[in-house]
Design a protein around this nucleic acid. Structure first.
Lengths: 264, 264
DNA sequence: TATGTCCATCTAGAAAATATACGAATAAAA
DNA sequence: TTTTATTCGTATATTTTCTAGATGGACATA
């Protein structure tokens, strides 16, 4: 019996339960009932199924505290990072501001995104008017969108620019929503997107100048033991890496050691 | 009939469907079947329920393209940002690197988090050994944790420090996992957490020095029309704001105009 | 014209979940 | 000490949800 053998709905519930046990160290039927709106009977069934699945380190019921307590060597069925599981830990009060810092969410026009998605699916080129931060609005151009990407802050469009003869990253928000979005088939095959199909393996180390003790904290914080932290992405996204990881800021605690490239 | 009247499982499915229609502009039964593992019959039922709910701008079936197409004035039942909905747009190939830039995920010790959560719940003080980046490891101290917070990058612990006589933000990863985590009741009531209970309203504007046209792009990108963008958070989290929004970097396109404070 | 794909719908039946009731252990309040 | 509240578990009958499998329609492509 595995987590994947279950139906989607119950699997979702057990994953939630798993996270409660992992990060809170405790869980009740009430947690399931409040979160999913199921009955007490069903919640009890879910607990039994969970206990059946978690044979390596099952939680135990503590009648004194009236909750299930995770085993001290508890192993998550579906491992999660603390950031993903934050909502498990944060009490949600309506009205008052969240206990999470608001993010700089970029807006996007639904219709524009749908047109681009459509062009990607059909493999057509599409006509757009694009405003770049440096050169201002253009008069309209044909691009061949291939996929959406994300740098964690905003969503980008990866597309071949016929004007430039290369693949570039575009910000959908800078596409004029009143562009024609006219589509046309691509006459000759596009070149390979080399940067996309190149793996960039970035090796990071604690910033030069940190004391040994500080370096140790940094290692623990980012979860690596040896000399380097290995992070893997695509060369096409590497441009965004330093900013996303804050390597270019004054208080940076990591720096690049080296970068390896290999075809995917 | 409203989205909230539905059971959790079906509501999840309809929200997914809603996002497909919103951002892809199209949806099939197959999308539901692949994502939730339901039958074709159930997927067809979900579509009918969705059509019943989306009375203001229902999608239409296009027999030629063999998909449902969102109305051009489509209104999302459950509005979402593009960043949240990114997984709807990104094709997921296993094996190859993701099309999203990896995030600098901070690690955290489950057991430590569970102890802290326990202390918050019970309202007790807890004994921990904390290593700060500046002053190094301490000899152990009592703190009174009140809640978890998040700056979007890592999760923090908000706690009253008896040593300092004030509320501070701690990084759980810097708490020694071998701390005693001994608990004791708090003898006299804690002072109010004034910074937590103060609303910080931050007014941002396009960075001075940008051209009018550039400022216009910035406004559209961050979704504000007038002079300022209003962002609301808690004073206790304000310290993280500039870094999270990249206001302290060279390429920043927003700057603070003013900040208002008011009690919550 | 044949084939494949996508849709919808029908029916019977399986599976999932509920409502309701009952009993047990514990802590705190009366 | 007794009562109340909270949490657990389980059992029953019932309702709701979902599936399996079959049927048919519209359209595109070969």
């Amino acid at each position: 019996m595995k987590l994947d053998d279950l139906k989607h709905a119950q699997r979702e519930r057990l994953i939630f339960l798993d996270r409660c046990l992992t990060w809170r160290g405790m869980a009740n039927r009430k947690d399931l009932i409040d979160h999913f709106g199921i009955s007490t009977a069903q919640a009890a069934l879910d607990f039994r199924v969970y206990l059946g699945l978690a044979h390596s380190s099952p939680p135990t019921y503590d009648p004194v505290r009236k909750t299930y307590i995770a085993a001290s060597e508890h192993e998550a069925l579906a491992p999660s990072g603390l950031t993903e599981a934050f909502d498990i830990l944060a009490g949600v009060d309506e009205d008052t501001p969240s206990s999470a810092l608001p993010r700089p969410e970029r807006k996007a026009d639904q219709r524009t995104i749908a047109f681009l998605h459509q062009a990607i699916r059909s493999g057509n080129a599409v006509h757009v008017r694009y405003t770049s931060m440096s050169s201002g609005a253009d008069e309209g151009q044909w691009i061949a969108p291939t996929r959406f990407t994300s740098d964690g802050e905003s969503v980008h469009l990866r597309a071949h620019s016929f004007k430039r003869g290369e693949y570039r990253n575009y910000l959908p928000i800078r596409i004029d929503p009143d562009s024609s979005f006219e589509e046309k088939p691509i006459d000759k095959p596009l070149p390979e997107d080399v940067d996309w199909n190149t793996r960039a393996i970035i090796w990071l180390r604690p910033k030069t100048g940190l004391s040994d003790e500080q370096a140790k904290v940094v290692r623990r914080e980012f979860g690596f033991e040896g000399e380097w932290l290995r992070v893997e992405t695509r060369k096409a996204l590497e441009f965004f890496f330093d900013r996303r990881w804050g390597l270019d800021t004054v208080g940076a605690r990591l720096e690049r050691a080296k970068t390896d490239y290999e075809p995917i």
